[in-house]
Amino acid sequence: MRHIISILLENEPGALSRVVGLFSQRNFNIETLNVAPTEDPSLSRLTVTTEGDDRVIEQITKHLNKLIDVVKLVDLTEGHHIERELMLVKVKALGASRDEVKRTVDIFRAQIVDVTPSVYTVQITGDAGKLDAFVQAMAPIGILEVGRTGVSGISRGDKILSL
């Protein structure tokens, strides 16, 4: 099963490499990885999506917790949560397909953020499934380049991941 693990990490040099290294060292899988500073400059928030059965996920969270640079973590998929990813896509926009791209962008509630005579650059946010669907819809028209941020997430309601 797919899990989204969010981690508050010491904003120290080398901290990220310890997390990433742990995954390769223990033969765990990283599907997406997203990391940025938080409102507290001493902390980064890192969100990783990974696949594994309960036993594997238990080991992943235990080993992550063992890292001295990991301050706190939560497996968002254990409860209700919001999951978002941002994607920038360059698609061919020539002739008849130019309108087709625009229509599909509207259907997905995406935005065209850059235009040339032959290319549209589209920005879209949503969960990973929505982004996958957009990529699929655009594929026949011609995708030139894709940049995805990886999943970021937060739990619903009053539950808070903080110190």
Binding site: G14, S17, Q25
Partner: peptide, 14 residues
Amino acid sequence: IVGVTRPIVKHSFA
């Protein structure tokens, strides 16, 4: 050396 030893230490400092 911090990189080399990363998987075989409890922690490291620079």
